[in-house]
Design a protein around this nucleic acid. Structure first.
Lengths: 113, 113
DNA sequence: AACGACACTTACAAAATTGTAAGCTCATGA
DNA sequence: TCATGAGCTTACAATTTTGTAAGTGTCGTT
């Protein structure tokens, strides 16, 4: 869905290369990503559970954002092969490590918005 | 350019209301906003100076992002009335207060990207 | 076998952001 | 006074994200 031949894409890459903060922002950007991450800080969740907790999100967008988060390795999708039940989404270490950062974002927002 | 009648817009508002971190992300999101802010941490700059420092940015997008940053009150556009020279862009206190946050973003990115 | 729940995917549309190119205004300098 | 440069704005197009609605496949239950 992304064109790796667009000026926009190219600018994004260049930016990520020389600006670490821009990379961080990019993994967090997406309408419901923060919300999903915050919920997952508490406990592992299934697709339907996340959807219930965030009523406004559509299944399409939820699926997209989960895929993004997985690609950026912030979350893991855990399938029990022996017992192929519904998959569960879980924060990775990388994902968990965002907690203080998200708290900082929240504190700044609370103070200045 | 934004429709205040779209589902997307409405979701954004709801999100900002109950999630301070989402608000913070939103003021930082935009292709070159971080870069602009970082440059302005050092010194006040004029339109053309910023453009020189960020060759890939177009005048259109630079103007847009500056307007955004001004609306979010992160920067000030300073016009000398007595001596109507070229305006200068300067970080506001709110803008300056982002410095540690941006550093945190950068540190996380450096470590995990 | 039929049915429904769950976890998605697909097709299509709307909205938002970014890019390209050109034009516009005002002040200064030749 | 005419040209030039700085600082924008405008018109239009491409790209990207988000939304709406419907459909698919696999279980487990009836």
């Amino acid at each position: 869905m992304r064109k790796n031949s667009s000026t926009n894409y190219e600018n994004e890459q260049v930016l990520h290369d020389f600006c670490d903060a821009a990379y961080t922002l990019s993994v967090l950007s997406g309408r419901w990503k923060l919300t999903i991450l915050v919920k997952l800080m508490e406990q592992d969740l299934r697709f339907g559970e996340i959807k219930q907790m965030i009523p406004k999100i559509t299944e399409r967008v939820l699926a997209l954002q989960l895929k993004n988060l997985e690609q950026d390795q912030l979350i893991l999708k855990i399938q029990h092969k022996s017992d192929p039940k519904a998959p569960v989404y879980r924060l990775s270490l990388k994902g968990k490590s965002l907690k203080p950062l998200i708290n900082s974002l929240a504190k700044w927002g609370e103070k200045y918005k």
